[in-house]
Design a protein around this nucleic acid. Structure first.
Lengths: 336, 336
DNA sequence: CTGAAAGCGCTAACAT
DNA sequence: ATGTTAGCGCTTTCAG
């Protein structure tokens, strides 16, 4: 049971060639003869040699590690995205190093830790990054892409869905169905996604001349959403509620049905945001705005690699449009 | 915008000391005078210096990276566990490098990639590892802990919940409620968790003299579980079904209620396994066996660190017991 | 306690 | 096309 690693030097000796020859064989694009290649590979195979990525990174300045900062994994959208992101990056020869950070926690410390690992880039999901921090990453030459998170600062690359347009789609849907008493349980007001969805929704209603009776901040939390639903039904009595994401929408539906004895959509129509897998399950059958995780991830990878390969490239912002997916939690036309 | 990293050499020059002095200041347990410490830290602060973890790992042989292999993130139990695992390891100064691998895919290649990163240890969740591979990791001196995954090979450390005992608890619960027509939609028969839960369930029923009418393999998949439920209700007509995990149980409940028009628990009682967050949601209110993700993760970290610090330690197996959580998808007593 | 020197495993000039 | 040499940034002997 040898614990010592097999090095390129070992392979070189075994094959009777120089150590750099071994290196070349494992360096894409280096010039080696067929014969050398075969000989080295044979020895490498025999000894079970593989290049040490970390040692390589020391000299190339590329670690092939991408740092991912994420706050919570309990909104299904994030595991879905993480899985896709990880697979997509794997396909490009990168891997994801995970850093959990609670919202409001000391993010700076987390980012410092990330930088310690010499990551080639950073994906920040569900985290609001301070300008100070962004500056620091730029100084360190580390590309950052904000995933599903907006920022005023135009200096950061970001990928979001078309939150504002999404909010408008929901408004149009409610208006077309003839709803008159409309309310919104928003995503966290401290996040741009939450604000944008709310703003688009309000815009859409205003354009149609339908009042938005109330907005309550659900903070993207299950329990807060349930409370908001209770309060709304007691005080405002809406017949249609747009909820800032799917997970909160499930909470709202459960509260309406099982606690308040109301029917969805007959008594109250409910729309969510994300279109996570569960939204299509019969128990909820939730009308929702799709955030196309797949395309968002592809865009993220694209932005990231672009900035890794061309550090001088200006950070871009990509917004991905998603359709309103109509399901059973809303009906085409409201009762007269 | 300097892209060049600040090195210990830079700090040394700035502070007017040797480079090794700087290193000592950032190496826990090295001997440095108070004065030196203060001086170096001041310079480091001024220049924004932090040690390069990768360069350090080259010489210490420890990367402080743990490789995590996971197949899918769509069973909520895994994101929950991943989040906890990541936080727990972070607290110990480690970080998680994620490797997605589909079941049946070439796992060997994935593990090779992991080893390329010089990880200090590997957590394999939801993956069956070949003996060949296990041997290889041992040869490379990499501790492996199987998470929520059993293996015949006693040479591997593993953490599971008490699946067999869990199955027996479900059996006892059904028997006590007076159920006579009992069926099981099992977890994937190719996995030890699936087999153990089924075996415990069968044992428990046998001991009580109640027949187990049928076992169908649900493969831990939503759609397979729905099909199994349809088939069971058409052919076997059970009044109680034990389902191999929560996600499949949700699928079964939806199928029973919305497709077949049956009531849960009045017509059919349903029990799941895992106790993911959704199981407590009113829409399902699922009776289930809890897998204590928290304790399982703690045990995993414990085993991992133990084996990293003492490579000679024999791999241990830890089994964590979880209670049956009674909720509305089963009733205390069945109708006479 | 501190500095000088040797290397961890590798890539990238530089020669040949 | 191949070998030789010089580091990447760091820790760790070894002297003093």
């Amino acid at each position: 049971m040898s614990v010592r690693r097999v090095t390129s030097q070992d392979v070189a000796e075994h094959a009777g060639v120089s150590q750099s020859a071994v290196s070349r064989v494992f360096t894409p694009g280096a010039s080696v003869s067929k014969k050398m290649e075969a000989r080295v590979r044979a020895s490498a195979e025999a000894l079970g040699y593989r290049p040490n990525v970390l040692a390589r990174s020391l000299i190339t300045g590329r670690s092939r590690i991408i740092g991912l900062v994420v706050a919570y994994l309990d909104n299904q959208f994030y595991p879905e995205a993480l899985e896709r992101l990880s697979r997509a990056l794997q396909a490009e020869g990168y891997h994801v190093l995970v850093f959990m950070s609670r919202e409001g926690e000391d993010l700076d410390e987390v980012i410092q830790e990330i930088l310690d690992y010499q990551v080639d880039g950073i994906v920040a999901a569900s985290v609001s990054m301070s300008d100070e921090l962004a500056r620091r990453c730029r100084a360190a030459g580390k590309p950052v892409v904000l995933f599903n998170r907006g920022q005023e600062d135009a200096g950061l690359a970001q990928v979001t869905s078309a939150n504002r347009a999404g909010g408008r789609k929901v408004a149009a849907h409610f208006v077309a169905a003839g709803h008159k008493r409309i309310a919104h349980i928003s995503g966290w007001a401290g996040s741009m996604t939450g604000r944008d969805r709310a703003a688009g929704f309000a815009e859409g209603l205003k354009a149609a001349g339908v009042p938005l009776l109330e907005i309550v901040d659900g903070e993207y939390r299950w329990e807060r959403a349930a409370e908001a639903a209770r309060w709304l039904m007691a005080e405002i009595k809406p017949d249609a509620i747009f909820v800032g994401n799917d997970v909160m929408a499930f909470s709202v539906m459960d509260t309406l049905r099982f606690e308040l004895g109301l029917r969805v959509p007959q008594d109250v129509a409910v729309v969510g945001y994300d279109d996570v897998a569960m939204a299509a399950w019969p128990a909820y059958d939730l009308t929702t705005v799709r955030q196309p995780a797949d395309r968002m991830v592809r865009a993220t990878v694209e932005l990231l690699l672009e900035r890794i390969e061309t550090p001088s490239a200006a950070p871009r912002r990509i917004e991905i449009d998603g359709p309103l997916v109509r399901r059973g939690s809303t009906s085409a036309e409201v009762k007269a």
